[in-house]
């Protein structure tokens, strides 16, 4: 039972592993050109496991920024995971705290999205470990590989594969949107808010994702709480 749950998780996480492949490979490569040893570069992927902030740290190291500021910046970029794990807590089956503390390490934008949109009502720890194991494995192995081979994929493939994680997000969102007005509203409002923060440059990326996600979740929930489900059947009648 546990075993097959883990295997299902591995299967669900395979597309993340593919999406991480070009990102981790390029990270290994960039780390090398920044002057990190194979050991140092791979250690960052092993211990931090957070794509965006790892990339940013490289450019900040190159710019000679104070390491303390790099750590603070990492915190700001990753604070959005606070929201994700709070949400994930509702979706997960009860488990001893050390188990939850263990899989918490592997919660990234991608593993969160895959686990949280799972069709199961409650997700088992074994399933989460499966998703995380394959994603983490890909991230660490391809970081090292990028550093070792010191070369990237052919340009056209590099370009094409840069879409992978976004294709994954779209593939996770679309099935949930079908026939579910609330999901469509949630995603659209968050997307609009993020575009607003992005183009006005009001917030940096880390805060912008956090703010647009939280605002959208709250606004839509309050709208539904205030007006209930009343307006929806009326409109849906028109459609049928």
């Amino acid at each position: 039972m546990e075993r097959s749950e883990f295997n299902n998780g591995l299967r669900a996480g395979l597309s993340i592993a593919i999406g991480y492949f070009p990102v981790a490979l390029t990270f290994g490569l960039l780390a090398k050109s920044t002057g990190l040893s194979l050991f140092e570069a791979t250690a960052m992927s092993i211990f931090v496991f957070a794509g965006a902030s790892q990339y940013i740290s490289l450019s900040l190291v190159t710019a000679g920024v104070d390491p303390l500021l790099i750590v603070m910046n990492t915190f700001i970029v990753n604070i959005r995971h606070f929201l994700m794990t709070a949400s994930l807590n509702e979706k997960m089956q009860p488990a001893p705290k050390p188990i939850k503390a263990a899989y918490a390490f592997g919660v990234t934008d991608e593993t969160f999205s895959v686990i949280a949109t799972s069709k199961q009502d409650k997700v088992s720890s074994a399933h989460a470990f499966g998703v995380i194991t394959i994603a983490y494995g890909s991230w660490v192995i391809f970081t090292a590989l990028g550093h070792v081979i010191g070369a990237n994929l052919p340009l056209f493939l590099q370009a094409a594969m840069s879409i992978a994680l976004y294709a994954l997000f779209i593939a996770l969102l679309v099935p949930s949107m079908k026939g579910n007005r609330k999901v469509i509203l949630l995603a659209s409002l968050a997307a609009l808010l993020h575009c607003f923060f992005y183009y006005t440059e009001l917030l940096s990326t880390g805060w912008a994702i956090l703010a647009s996600t939280l605002l959208s979740s709250i606004i839509i929930e309050l709208l539904y709480a205030k007006y209930g489900l009343a307006p929806i059947p009326a409109v849906e009648k028109e459609e049928s």
Binding site: N89, Y166, A190, A191, L193, S217
Partner: peptide, 20 residues
């Protein structure tokens, strides 16, 4: 809990746009 269960769908919207 309602707000928390909304987060996966909102976060996907914010992760996709405008970065894609």
């Amino acid at each position: 809990t309602g707000i928390l269960s909304n987060i996966p769908f909102a976060v996907l919207g914010a992760l996709i746009f405008p970065a894609v």
